[in-house]
């Protein structure tokens, strides 16, 4: 494994949240006397990621993914534990550290709303103090990778969500960061746009050797991009390793689909050990038009993983 670029050791992040019962009386009482409860968003989380890796960060809503990304990018301070990214302590937010990272949030945008994206690019160029030649070169390369065309000339508010997201990525990558934190970068996009962005992220990773940590609700993103996944639930590490191995562990079945000549379709889940025998048997039957063997969709794997976790704890 290459030298770790991101190291997280026993990271815990707690929030103090104000809680009260519903209703006016309770609201009034809470003004006078506040009750606080400690919510633990991340709980003794440890992992490390090597330079150039693409890692998927998975977990149900509220698992602590975004909190972890924010700690890694220096926006939140850990309650305890240590974090190092590219040799820096993110919480200090030193400029050399910030020059090395980028954060893309699918739900939030940094583009100036009323001006064309090109203006945001120029602003970022000034902020990162990029020499003109390097800036033009990177912009050209990113534009080419994204097949972005002349989107940058129209005001951001006139662009579609997908077009906007493309420009968000360009704005976030102009300084050629070594570490990419991507929080739901494809959210709300149609399938073909998801594919475009996915390809782009992979190509950026390959061309610049950047490290990518990605959260997504679309399992296809993860399957297509991330050989390795880190799964957390309720702030705790549930799984860290190869994506395929995880699928096999949780769902040791293969899914066999059969289409008969009369048009009927059947799907059966077959344990790995019985697969050969079962397929042979099916093929020997009459009237089979088509037969495919596939892994169960990752969505199902994840659902099962979290269910399993819930019932055992």
């Amino acid at each position: 494994m290459p030298e770790p670029l991101i190291e997280v050791d026993a990271l815990t992040k707690e929030y103090r949240v104000h809680e009260r019962a519903p209703g006016v009386v309770a609201a009034l009482a809470s003004v006078l006397r506040r009750k606080y409860k400690i919510a633990r968003a991340v709980d003794a989380l440890s992992f490390s990621i090597g330079a150039g890796e693409r890692v998927g960060f998975l977990g149900p809503n509220g698992a602590g993914k975004t909190t972890t990304l924010k700690v890694l990018s220096g926006l939140l301070h850990p309650t305890s534990g240590t974090v190092r990214v590219a040799g820096f302590d993110p919480r200090r937010r030193e400029h050399p550290f910030l020059r090395n990272i980028t954060l893309v949030m699918g739900q939030k945008q940094q583009l100036l709303w009323d001006l064309p994206p090109a203006d945001t690019f120029i602003l970022n160029r000034a902020i990162y103090d990029l020499p003109e030649r390097e800036y033009q070169e990177t912009l050209g390369e990113l534009t080419e990778l994204l097949e972005r065309g002349d989107l940058a000339e129209r005001p951001t508010r006139q662009l579609s969500l997908g077009e906007r997201m493309k420009c968000e990525l360009v704005a976030a990558l102009l300084h050629r960061p070594k570490v990419l934190f991507l929080d739901e970068p494809t959210i709300g996009l149609d399938v073909s746009m998801q594919v475009t962005l996915r390809d782009f992220i992979r190509r950026y990773n390959e061309r610049f050797g950047a490290t990518v940590l990605l959260t997504s609700h679309y399992m296809d993103d993860v399957t297509a991009l991330c050989p390795r996944v880190i799964v957390i639930d309720k702030g705790r590490l549930t799984y860290d390793g190869d994506l395929q191995a995880l699928a096999h562990r949780v769902r040791p079945h293969k899914r066999v689909r059969v289409r008969r000549e009369d048009g009927r379709e059947e799907t059966v889940d077959v344990p790995q050990s019985e697969l050969k025998a079962r397929v042979t048997q099916l093929l020997a039957e009459r009237g089979i038009a088509d037969l495919t063997v596939e892994d169960p969709p990752l969505e199902e794997v994840m659902r099962e993983l979290f269910m399993e976790k819930r019932t055992t704890t």
């Binding site: 400029h95 990272i101 939030k108 902020i127």
Partner: peptide, 13 residues
Amino acid sequence: RKGTLDFVLIKPA
């Protein structure tokens, strides 16, 4: 209010 201050805070300036 929108949480986009994060983008300002991760800039090296």
